[in-house]
């Protein structure tokens, strides 16, 4: 999901170098999604591969957090979102390395290396935007304030997770919040940005209830395999 959103920057990056950096991250994320969906399809055992899960599910079938489906916004929004999500993903992958499913543990170990770089790249940008000009500071702060209401969902434990955690097939999301908050506050302070206070937290993505943006995005993402079923590319 986030890989697709990042890929929308291709050809529109603020400078050539950042254009390449963002699309590199997009490719990493799409690669991680391919592995994860492939494993999910195998576990499901209904013959659905990664492509079937990515291209033939409708919005209600998607279980992603709201944060990653929001439109890419300006560069500040993209960077702040990438940072908030990558830190979360990094801690989740670290924990998943000791998952009981050997395939998932292997995917996590591979993805973790990439994600550590995503954190480094986005964190350095957050600092430079926050501690940059009035314009960049304002935009980064706006993005942080806007995104904060979507952070709570990342740490919500649902019924499926509760079932899987004791068997060590999943990581309890609530345990990721403290390390996430430590890393995020540290960078936000370095960036001279202000931590948003308590705000109402949006939820629903994990149970298939999405923002209005997801359907539009899926229409574009899925148009090819839906128009030409079985097409190879």
């Amino acid at each position: 999901m986030l890989g697709h959103r990042l890929s929308e920057w291709c050809g529109h990056g603020p400078i050539l170098e950042e254009d390449i950096a963002l699309t590199n991250i997009a490719l990493d994320l799409v690669g991680q999604a391919t592995l994860l969906l492939g494993r999910a399809g195998a576990v499901e055992g209904k013959g659905r591969d990664a492509d079937a899960l990515a291209y033939l599910r409708t919005d209600r079938g998607y279980r992603n957090a709201h944060m990653v489906e929001l439109p890419k916004g300006d560069f500040g929004f993209t960077i702040v979102r990438q940072f908030l999500f990558s830190v979360y993903s990094m801690h989740q992958l670290e924990a998943l390395q000791s998952c009981a499913d050997a395939d998932l543990a292997g995917i996590a170990a591979k993805a973790l290396k990439e994600t550590r770089y995503h954190v480094r790249h986005s964190a350095e940008w957050v600092v430079r935007l926050g501690d940059g000009t009035d314009e960049s500071h304002g935009r980064a702060q706006d993005a942080l304030d806007e995104l904060w209401r979507y952070t709570g969902e990342l740490f919500t434990t649902d019924a499926v997770e509760q079932k899987l955690v004791p068997q060590k097939f999943a990581v309890e999301s609530s345990t990721l919040q403290d390390p996430w908050m430590r890393d995020v506050s540290d960078v936000i302070a370095r960036a001279t940005l202000r931590m948003p206070g308590e705000v109402y937290q949006q939820r629903g993505g994990r149970s298939g209830i999405h923002t209005e943006h997801l359907g539009v995005m899926l229409a574009e993402m899925q148009v090819l395999p839906r128009t030409h079923p079985g097409a190879k590319w």
């Binding site: 950096a21 590199n24 770089y117 350095e124 430079r128």
Partner: peptide, 20 residues
């Protein structure tokens, strides 16, 4: 060569452009 505002970003841009 790459464009960047400072050394750390230059290093990251170099990684993305020349060392991936």
């Amino acid at each position: 060569s790459v464009h960047a505002a400072d050394a750390e970003m230059a290093l990251q841009n170099a990684r993305d452009v020349y060392a991936r």
